[in-house]
Structures are given as C-alpha cells and as structure tokens.
Simulated assay, not measured.
Amino acid sequence: MAKQDYYDILKIDKSASATEIKKAYRKKAIKFHPDKNPDNSEAESKFKEAAEAYEILSNPDKKARYDQYGHQAFDGNGGFSGGNMNMDDIFSQFGDIFGGGFGGGGGFSGFGGGGGQRRIKGTNMRIRVKLTLEEIANGVEKKVKVRRKVQAPGTSYKTCDACNGAGQVMRVTNTILGRMQTATTCTSCGGAGQIIDKKPNEADAQGMLVKEETVSIKIPAGVVDGMQLKVTGKGNEAPGNGVSGDLLVAIEEEPHAKLQREGDNLHYDLYVSLPDAVLGSSKEIDTVTGKVRIKIETGVQSGKILRLRGKGIPSINGYGRGDLLVHVNVWTPKTLNKQQKEFFESMKDDEHFEPKPEIGDKSFFEKVKDMFS
C-alpha cells in the first residue's frame, strides 16, 4: 500500500516555512494524541504518521531529498519507520515541539515534564556502501558487518536517586521578578533516569559492550551517489530502557568500465571500423541488464547517437527507466600498408567519398542539445 504524501498528512504546501511545518505538526499531534484518544488505534496511527512527516519535513536535507525522490529516498530497510515506533520513541524525539500542549507540566505523558521517565536514544552510526552500476539498476540487498554498542548481558539498572527517575532536576531560584523554577538535565544519570546497579567487568561505565553484528540493508533500484538511507534501530544501543540509534548508509557509486551515468540515462561509446561504417555491421554491447546486439546501418556517420529505450537506470520515484545512448565513433586508422594507402589514394576524387551532409544530419551542437533534452 502506497504511503500518503507527507505534505497531505500535515495539510501544508511544499512552500510552507519551518514555522508553518512545526505549527501544522503540533496541531495534528494534539488532535490525535493518545491521552485524548484512549484505546483508539486509528488515532494512534495518525499520530505516528504526523510524527513521521514532521521528522522528514523539518529537516532541510531530508526535505530536499523527499521533494526530489519521494518516499523511496528513505527506503532501504529504513526511512523514518514511524509506524514501528512506540509512543515513548516519538516523545523522545519530538517532545520539544509540544510545549505546554497537555496539562500544566509542560509536556505529554511519557516525556519530560509529564512525570514519565525519559528515554535516551543511542548514537547513530554511519557507514558507506559501494554499489556497482548493475546493483543500482536492479536493486540489491547488502549484508554488512558493523560494530555497535549493545547492553552487556547481566547488566542491571536502578532508578537514579538524584532525580527519582525523571531525568531532570528542578531548581527554584529567587530573582527580582520572583521565584523562578527551571529544569536541568540530571548530572548523575545524564538524563536517563537510571544508573548502573550491576555490570560485568568487561562492560564500560554505562554497562555497554562493542559487538560485531551482520545487518541486512535493502537498497532500492535507482539510488544515486551520495544518497543516504537509514536502517532504524541498528545504531548503538542506549543504556537502560533507551532507544537504539540508527544506522545511516551513504551510497557510493563505483565507476563502470564502459558505461557513464547521467541521471537515469546511460552513455556508451561504440567504436566502429571504416569497413563496418561503410558496409554496415552488428555489434554486441554491455548494458546493466546484460549484453545486447545492435545493428550498425550502412554508411553510419561518426557522432550518430543510437537510443535504446528502457535500457538505462530505473527512476527511484517509480517513473519508468532511463535510456541507453550509444555514441557511434568511426575509427580512422593512423597507419596503412602500401596496398591500403594506394586504395585510398585512388578514392580521393571518387564522388562516393565526397562529404555530402543531408538536411537531416544534425550538427554536433544539435546532438548535444538532443542528448540533454
């Protein structure tokens, strides 16, 4: 089932400012918040949809990629995956947006001032994955080994005495304007609300170990060099009841020996001999889906572009495939033997060897213009 457009979810235009995006999300979140819609699975689903839309559209880099590539810019076993997050996960990432939306505590239940325990998110990890042009054209599933922090077996935690599990410490100070109450992150637990109770000797101060793990990454067809995918929850784990970070996967396109990519189109330089150009021939060339044989017509001119439709790269937005443009280059020999030289000497004044461009023969600049149109 196709995902709903993020702009439609928040009911905003693509030209909406950051302030308008934030305001639209807050309105949606308040409307469908679980505290106002108890035991309502549809409201919970819409609440998560709004969180997912805001996570993308509030980030300028992610918004730009979404505007260009749509949902597939974040598909790779990842994207935001808001539908797979529980409410605490969303609160931990977006609590600051709500302000005093619910109750006098200045936050929702499950986050910050609502009295619930904060959930710390583990740090993200970044890796680079190299892909061949064939893998990009067909999509691929890559299995990579990563070394990530995980909670050590046998580690247990207890509620932080300094903040009573809130993760924050309230301080009251006297000012000329009266008594001011402020909340600061608890220095004893770092905002987690929990501290180490027991841990094995090999674990670090937070009860974590570094473990090697194999992660499967589904990479859709049509990705581009520099694009970043996200595998949710495969970054470093967080201590206690925290949320795991994400694995950010940067795509690196490996150069192809014979094909050059330009967007969704591919270019191939085909060199043919004078006899093949004069008499016509057929040639086998490489494509991203295997080899194909093409016909070289009699009298083909150097610079001729043959277009093989649908033999390029699939659009990451699902708008079909690009084409393979075959650039014909007639190869002129630099050295000739006596017999060959005599033949061409005798053909110098032959009318069949006189250049006679036809009206339909395009100039170099016209060919370049067609190539980019």
Rank of each mutant, 00 (worst) to 15 (best):
G310Y: 08
L274M: 10
L10V: 13
G116C: 03
A137Y: 00
K62H: 07
I9P: 12
A162W: 01
V140T: 12
K369E: 14
K145F: 13
L259V: 13
I30V: 15
D197C: 03
A166I: 00
S373C: 06
P357S: 07
E252V: 13
G263E: 09
E141D: 09
G167I: 11
R179G: 01
K22Y: 07
H256G: 08
K27S: 13
G178T: 08
P357E: 05
T214S: 02
D349R: 08
G165D: 03
T155Q: 04
T132R: 00
N138Q: 06
A203C: 02
T182L: 01
G312V: 02
N236L: 06
Q4C: 04
L209Y: 08
K121N: 05
I305N: 05
N84Q: 14
S281I: 04
Q228L: 07
T332F: 04
N138G: 10
A2T: 10
L248Y: 10
K311L: 05
Q72I: 01
F32G: 00
V330S: 03
P333Y: 09
N86G: 14
E237K: 09
T155D: 00
E237A: 15
K311N: 10
N317F: 01
T19K: 13
P314D: 00
K145H: 03
V224I: 13
G83C: 11
K14V: 04
Q168N: 09
A250F: 11
Q339E: 15
T232H: 05
T19W: 03
Y157G: 10
L308R: 05
G310W: 14
G263F: 09
I195T: 13
T155P: 02
R65H: 11
V292R: 10
R293G: 04
K31C: 02
G167R: 09
K63P: 07
G226T: 07
Q151F: 00
A221Y: 04
P220L: 09
E202K: 12
D39S: 10
K362M: 03
E237Q: 15
G78H: 01
N265H: 15
